[in-house]
């Protein structure tokens, strides 16, 4: 190896790290500080209140309902995306002709802005003139009923982010040696057996990684819900990010709003820790 001075190595990596610390690490520390204060931008109130914002969280029904909504959104959407992602990957894996066009079409939902897809789905979900009710042949009040609204947001999220899961699962499928399939077939395994005993275990580590990415994305879900339902009807779809945003920028409560925002970070941190434990227990890849 050719020697490089440490100073040179540092010089190359420093600008990126400085920018990252300034724009992500520093604000995180600042948000912790804000979460310990009562700060109202309109009234010029700004004083230290210790942990009282955290105590307020526990008695705040709107926070608890946002927490429940986020948990439901996260659990259901990630589970659906993983199951659908594996199925679609298996289907697309067989495509030989026009593969490029097919992959581009499947990528489209992932690539277009979430805001645009939320508007698109809002129009399709429209109770009176929506194409979904027309195709179903029955009037479902998608965005107006507390039960359907959150599920509608999940449906949109699944449409939008399953392509990402598909791509990564396809990358994992490519790594499985063809010989392995042949060997299993010689041993007399059927299609279901092959999937259950070969494909799934070999794709599992990738699925955990994808699950981490998707879960952390779903925990902080903002655009999809904010534009599709605005948290309504009557707060039944409000997620933690949407609630934090409203506290911060509609009622300008920068102290308590930061506490709610920080809770999203803490939940993400806990979940990451949980996934790391799972990942460690999986047998390493072949």
């Amino acid at each position: 190896m050719i020697a490089v001075r440490r100073r040179t190595q540092v010089a190359f990596v420093a600008p990126a790290l400085i920018l990252l610390s300034g724009v992500t690490v520093y604000p995180l520390l600042h948000v912790v500080w804000l979460s310990l204060r009562r700060r109202l931008l309109i009234f010029d109130i700004d004083r230290f209140v210790g942990l009282s914002n955290y105590r307020r969280l526990l008695g705040d029904d709107r926070f608890l309902s946002a927490l429940a909504n986020t948990a439901y959104f996260c659990g259901v959407s990630v589970a659906l995306e993983l199951v659908l992602g594996v199925s679609v990957a298996l289907v697309l894996n067989r495509v030989r002709r026009a593969r490029g066009v097919v992959m581009a079409i499947v990528l489209l939902p992932w690539a277009i802005p979430t805001v645009v897809s939320a508007k698109m789905w809002a129009w399709m979900f429209s109770a009176d003139y929506g194409v979904l009710n027309y195709l179903l042949g029955r009037p479902v009040n998608w965005l107006g009923s507390p039960f359907w609204a959150l599920n509608a947001a999940i449906l949109m999220d699944v449409w939008k982010t399953t392509p990402f899961v598909v791509l990564l699962v396809m990358a994992a499928l490519k790594e499985i040696p063809e010989d392995l399939y042949r060997a299993v077939r010689v041993d007399g395994a059927g299609r279901i057996g092959t999937f259950w005993y070969v494909t799934l275990p070999l794709v599992a580590p990738m699925l955990v990684i994808v699950a981490v990415f998707r879960t952390l994305d779903a925990v902080r879900v903002f655009d999809a819900v904010f534009v599709l339902t605005g948290g309504g009807p009557a707060g039944t779809t409000e997620t933690l990010s949407v609630y934090a945003y409203e506290l911060l920028f509609q009622t300008l409560q920068f102290g308590y709003g930061s506490t709610v925002a920080l809770s999203v970070f803490l939940i993400a941190l806990l979940l990451t820790g949980g996934y790391l434990l799972v990942l460690r227990r999986l047998p390493s890849r072949l």
Partner: peptide, 24 residues
């Protein structure tokens, strides 16, 4: 370690940093 730190930073929810960023 640096790569792990960078990955951790990428998982910060934007909502958690948006209030100080707005103030700055």
């Amino acid at each position: 370690w640096i790569l792990a730190g960078v990955l951790a930073v990428s998982m910060f929810p934007p909502i958690a940093t948006v209030s100080p960023l707005y103030l700055v």
